[in-house]
């Protein structure tokens, strides 16, 4: 089915099998292998990408659902050689071991920052009607859709905290 989709600033007009997940489209047809397939059932977050600036699991979406959308993957975050602040923070804090979940973790954290800026609450927000303060409990809750089997959670938390602090 004809689908027009903008990925990392590049327009693509393609014919895709209706069954193709957004994740498979990115990996297999555009050769963007940064987004990872972990569980393929929306349980691990390794496939997290940004669609129109909002983080979603690319495995639980069909490419044909994204006609006209703008997708950003891990490959689209850096500006030339200049890393995105979250990429740099993950390096600085050594926030990974095997690295398989890392692209999803970083895209997820980019989405998290936008959600904080927009004032979205979470399950960890004590007062739903007050300005959200990005505590460690908030970061943990908001990153709960991204699993790390190496269990680099303390470093991931530190990286997100570092990037959020730099942005504030």
């Amino acid at each position: 089915m004809r689908t027009e989709i903008r990925v990392n600033g590049v327009d693509h007009a393609v014919d895709v099998d209706t069954r193709t997940s957004l994740l498979d489209f990115l990996r297999e047809q555009l050769d963007l292998k940064g987004s990872k397939k972990g569980c393929d059932h929306g349980q691990c977050g390794a496939c997290t990408v940004l669609v129109n600036g909002v983080r979603i699991n690319a495995c639980l979406s069909l490419a044909v659902m994204h006609d006209g959308d703008e997708v950003t993957t891990i490959e689209g975050l850096a500006s030339g050689e200049a890393l995105h602040p979250l990429q740099q923070a993950f390096l600085t804090e050594d926030a990974f071991q095997c690295g398989y979940c890392t692209p999803g973790q970083i895209c997820s954290a980019v989405g998290l920052m936008a959600e904080i800026a927009a004032g979205h609450p979470s399950d960890a927000t004590a007062d739903l009607n007050a300005k959200v303060i990005l505590t460690d409990a908030e970061i943990r809750e908001r990153m709960s859709g991204n699993i790390c089997r190496c269990s680099a959670y303390p470093q991931i938390l530190a990286a997100v905290r570092r990037a959020a602090g730099a942005a504030a």
């Binding site: 929306g42 977050g45 997290t48 909002v54 983080r55 979603i56 699991n57 639980l60 979406s61 997820s108 989405g111 998290l112 959600e115 609450p121 979470s122 399950d123 927000t125 739903l128 009607n129 908001r142 709960s144 859709g145």
Partner: peptide, 23 residues
């Protein structure tokens, strides 16, 4: 919703994860 129906906001926020709730 947050000010008048907090029970609804809380119920939604306790479900799933942000990536899925965004969709």
């Amino acid at each position: 919703v947050r000010s008048r129906y907090p029970v609804l906001a809380r119920a939604i926020l306790s479900g799933s994860c942000v990536q899925l709730r965004n969709k």
